[in-house]
Simulated assay, not measured.
Amino acid sequence: MTAPDALADVRRRIDAIDRRMVALIAERQACVVRAGSLKADAAAVRAPARVEQVIARVRALAVEQGASPDVVEATYRALIGAFISLELDVHRGAAEETGAAGSGAAVAEAENPELLLQRALSSAERGDAAVATSELIRLLDTASGLSLRLRAAVVLGELLIASGRSAEAELVLATAASGAEVAEDLDDVDAAELERVRDLLDHVRR
């Protein structure tokens, strides 16, 4: 078999694996949606202790299966962060449907990116990096303001670097930098924040 044929065969196998993985993610999502509708509040959704429990378990499973624990951890942290955002949305929807007290405040907070950023900063200052990371990922997924996104990317990048997740930090920072560079002549680009993003990006790439 020639090298191109061998590569094509490997890629076909990867595509088949991806199909199975996406099916499993869909199955996990169904469980997450159900869990989100049952939890009492947003704190129960974020559940940082549960997150770390899952990470410890999948790292151990990675060792058993001959996979890189670091790769598995990075994959699961990204997956969990995305599912927390989804579960928060589900939880808020369930609270609205049942007329749960305080749901209006939760919706108002979700619509206020500045408030979400401040809450993430408070979580980081308390040393609750898992919660801060989830909130910042959610903010970057939803916020449209470029200056706010740069600030969030800086804080998230610093948290990821501090926790040894340099590959994820590089992705967050590179995405923020490229988005800002497209609009670098616009007034809403904070030059200092953009420079900080670039400095952190240079740091993780060394």
Rank of each mutant, 00 (worst) to 15 (best):
M1I: 04
A3G: 03
A3F: 14
P4R: 06
L7F: 13
A8K: 11
V10D: 14
R11A: 13
R12F: 06
R12A: 15
R13P: 02
A16V: 06
R19F: 12
V22R: 15
V22E: 12
A23P: 11
A23S: 10
L24C: 05
A26H: 13
A26I: 07
A26E: 15
A26D: 15
R34N: 05
R34D: 13
G36V: 00
S37H: 05
S37K: 08
K39R: 15
D41Y: 03
D41Q: 03
A42G: 10
A44Q: 14
A44M: 06
R46N: 01
E52T: 05
V54R: 10
I55G: 04
I55A: 07
R57P: 05
V58Q: 06
R59G: 00
L61C: 06
L61Y: 07
L61W: 10
A62W: 09
E64F: 03
G66W: 03
A67G: 04
P69M: 05
D70R: 13
E73P: 08
Y76E: 12
R77D: 01
A78H: 12
G81C: 07
A82W: 10
F83V: 04
F83D: 15
S85R: 13
L86C: 08
L88I: 05
H91K: 09
R92E: 10
E96T: 12
E96Q: 13
E96W: 07
E97V: 12
G102K: 02
S103A: 15
G104Y: 00
G104E: 08
V107H: 13
V107F: 14
E109P: 04
A110S: 10
E111F: 09
P113G: 03
P113C: 01
L115A: 15
L117I: 00
L117H: 03
Q118D: 14
A120F: 05
L121D: 04
L121I: 07
S122V: 09
G127Y: 01
D128N: 01
A132S: 06
A132V: 01
S134G: 06
E135G: 08
E135T: 03
I137Y: 11
I137E: 14
R138A: 08
L139Y: 09
A143G: 02
L146Y: 06
L148N: 00
L150D: 01
V154M: 03
E158L: 07
G164H: 00
R165A: 11
S166V: 10
A167L: 12
A167Y: 02
E168R: 09
A169H: 00
E170N: 00
V172N: 01
V172D: 04
A174R: 15
A176E: 08
A176W: 11
A176M: 02
S178G: 10
G179H: 02
A180C: 03
V182W: 09
V182G: 07
E184L: 15
D185P: 04
L186T: 07
L186W: 08
D187G: 11
D187A: 15
D188C: 03
D190P: 10
A191G: 08
A192K: 10
E193G: 03
R196N: 09
V197D: 02
D199V: 11
D202F: 13
V204T: 02
R205Y: 00
